[in-house]
């Protein structure tokens, strides 16, 4: 099946399933994953990572969490505390790994995409210029949360 034959609902289902698959494979913590939701602009981001998607899906993947979340995940993945500049670099890399994993999953669903290198967002950015966004809420123990948004232009 080529992507033109997929409806937007099918694409959103594939992105949702791919996001769950990738988050579970990438982050070695047991998540509780919320139902998908569609939100409208603007998207307020205090701290997060933005990665562009090109190809069959055009949009941006935005991961939002606080410093503590990225520090916890960094330590769980690499066995060492992650702080300062390295925390920002790790946040970008975690975004890259999740976006890359999602692109890999989507390829198995006949959706060909490529990703851009990550941009770290800090300081209360308000993102607009997209039509709608798929929102997936991922929760971990100790009330740690990761919000994943795929901003779409259709």
């Amino acid at each position: 099946m080529v992507v033109e034959e997929k409806s937007i609902n099918e694409i959103i289902k594939d992105v949702y399933n791919g996001t769950i698959d990738t988050v579970k494979k990438t982050i070695p913590l047991e998540p509780a994953i919320g139902a998908p939701a569609i939100i409208e602009p603007p998207l307020e981001v205090a701290f997060g990572v933005l990665i562009g998607f090109t190809g069959d899906i055009k949009g941006e993947l935005v991961l939002q969490a606080d410093d503590q979340f990225f520090a916890t995940v960094g330590e769980s993945m690499f066995g060492m505390p992650v702080t300062g500049d390295m925390l920002e670099s790790f946040a970008g890399e975690l975004g890259n790994m999740i976006a890359g994993g999602l692109a890999t999953y989507l390829a198995t669903q006949s959706i060909k995409t490529d990703i851009t290198h990550p941009t770290v967002l800090k300081g209360d950015a308000a993102l607009s210029g997209f039509k709608r966004a798929l929102f997936v809420d991922v929760s971990y123990t100790d009330q740690q949360k990761l919000a994943i948004h795929l901003l779409l232009n259709k």
């Binding site: 890259n96 790994m97 999740i98 976006a99 890359g100 994993g101 692109a103 890999t104 390829a107 198995t108 060909k112 490529d114 990703i115």
Partner: peptide, 8 residues
Amino acid sequence: CSAMGQQQ
């Protein structure tokens, strides 16, 4: 050494 693991 990449996060992009698709066959292509």
